[in-house]
Amino acid sequence: MDLSIFLILLQDGVINGAIYALLGLSLVLVFTVTRVIFIPQGEFVSFGALTLALLERGQTPATIWLLLALGVVSAVAQVWQGRRTLSARRVLAIAGTDLALPAAVAAVTMLLAPMKPPVAVQIALTLAIITPMGPYIYRMAFQPLAEASTLVLLIAAIGVHLALTGLGLVFFGAEGSRTEPFSSAMFEIGSLLVSGQSLWIMGVTAALVAALGAFFELTLTGKALRATAVNRLGARLVGIAPSMSSAIAFTLAGFIGALSGVLVSPLTTIYYDTGFLIGLKGFVAAIIAGLASYPIAGAAAILVGVVEALASFWASSFKEVIVFLIIIPVLLWRTWGAPVVEEDDH
């Protein structure tokens, strides 16, 4: 391997790593706020990419029907759970977020999709379709289990993953799709050829990380989320409903997932089940970060991407083995000699 090959691989790894970083961040966020190990994170990536691909072809994506259905179920679930305490205002609010919003998104999509609107509009539609699925799924699947053990939440997450993957196959079929790049520009930096699309990915990832940082540090909602992550009871005591923080965390998860899908789909073919493996690699990064630190998760994701790129050059048959087993030494290093930590979680 000479330097130029190494640089190309490095670039490739960093780009893939950026996507893993986005997912890793999202996983850490959801876990710290809700204790849910959100396996279905990857499905949002697939849904986002494939919805965009359908819009690009001027077709109405079937995901809008899923959005509508999820909204209805979420509304029903919330009204049922709070049937004794609901105020009329609250019911109206639920109707607004869970019924009117998806209906509006669906209507706009059906109207615009056949007209093949500009890429920016397609992306906006995609994000509008996929993002609300996050909180809807939280409301129907996880909120009723809020006090359950991490294991139960994990199994529920697997149930959601199975259902969403199945839906993905029904909506999009088994074959993959790929979208047009936002930019077809190519830049030459030394011996390295850098595509405009990869710059987009790096830029958006960096911007999103910065935005998340600002969100957590500067806004009240962000602080509330952090408070919930540290101490659910404490957050409740100072007047932050954990269910609200959780819904926001899942909204962000939906948004980040859909955005990752939109970003990555011009680079590679995305299938209905691609998300799972991408999500797992995001997990590897999140685990390395101890499911706690955002900056470390980001850095670890880049590391995973680079290791993957190098492994695909050196030993492509064993690439996955290498990528997944790097977490073992990292985890050992993290826990070796650390004091026994008591977990009050059962």
Partner: peptide, 25 residues
């Protein structure tokens, strides 16, 4: 011996890694 030192949520995720690796090996 390698994995069980990991506590809490690391263990399930580490076993995921083992199982995927086993499959490809």
């Amino acid at each position: 011996a390698v994995t069980l030192r990991l506590s809490g949520h690391y263990l399930p995720l580490a076993t995921i890694a083992w199982n995927i690796s086993f499959f490809y090996i």
